[in-house]
Nucleic acid binder design. Structure first.
Ligand SMILES: [Mn+2]
Ligand SMILES: [Mn+2]
Ligand SMILES: [Zn+2]
Ligand SMILES: [Zn+2]
Lengths: 141, 141
DNA sequence: GTCGGTAATGGTAATCATTCTCATTTGCGT
DNA sequence: ACGCAAATGAGAATGATTACCATTACCGAC
């Protein structure tokens, strides 16, 4: 399903700002971007989109299920394309690198922990904060 | 170790505001409190402490290892007493109730996931967002 | 116990991310 | 091409948190 179709499916009208934002996430760029990141990247590529619009669109895409919002350590939200395959994250505290992983055992133990206590799970977030080993860690974003 | 000793050990001088904040967390009250929660509770009990001081002290206690800071969904930080026993959290999206749990398997699989990829783990956060079953969920905070 | 210096406090201004307001522009069906 | 509801964007407003800085409270030395 292409971007335009994605928008229609979500009941969102196809506008230039929305397509531009969706393109950013679709590219081979970094998968995890903050609103500020998106705004700056669009400006840099000559596509002028208002900051308010960026925030609005990101939230709409999240509600439509096109993007996933993360609250890594710190104040700002980070978004990534929702490609249907759930995964968790390791965040390097030195350089900000983000690595994805999936562990079926962790997933099932989580479900069990919640079920045992009478909870109906919506979702969960698991962030591992770590240092990546020297060679591949350029230190500091 | 009592509160006064805690402060000394952390290299923090024993002041009235600090003791009051530490007392709040020591009581049988709710374990998980935001800065605003702490501020309001102190006001309510006649102990006037400035909001700026509350924020400062909470951060100092976190750095000293006396408190643990959480970033549950939403914008504000939540703190709890660090009693040495690590645990994760289930958060009810309806009423805000927070339940703690510990699963040794999850812990070890996390360590392994990070180690396998060459990361040296600092810490991690695992939050399960759910609905607690009707009877014990009073809906809405 | 008093004194003095330093660290802590607290009122208020400032900052940062995010949301709101509202006049202007755009997408889209007719 | 026309018309109108929905979307945009510049800037104001908000909410949480931090920075400033003049005043006050610890604490160790007399
Ligand atoms: Mn990811
Ligand atoms: Mn807890
Ligand atoms: Zn790194
Ligand atoms: Zn509940």
């Amino acid at each position: 399903m292409d971007h335009l179709t994605h928008l229609k499916t979500a009941g969102l009208k196809s506008t230039l700002p929305r397509l531009k934002v969706l393109n950013l996430f679709g590219n081979g760029n970094e998968r995890h971007l903050s609103a500020e990141d998106v705004y700056k990247k669009l400006l840099a590529s000559g596509d002028d989109v208002g900051l308010a619009t960026v925030y609005r669109v990101l939230t709409q895409f999240e509600q439509a299920g096109l993007l996933i919002r993360h609250h890594f350590e710190g104040d700002k939200s980070v978004f990534e394309l929702n490609e249907g395959k759930h995964h968790d994250h390791i965040v390097c505290l030195q350089c900000g690198r983000i690595e994805e992983f999936y562990d079926a055992t962790i997933e099932s133990r989580q479900k069990k922990a919640a079920a045992d206590r009478g909870y109906s799970v919506h979702d969960h977030s698991l962030y591992i904060y770590a240092d990546c080993i020297k060679p591949k860690c350029p230190n500091k974003p």
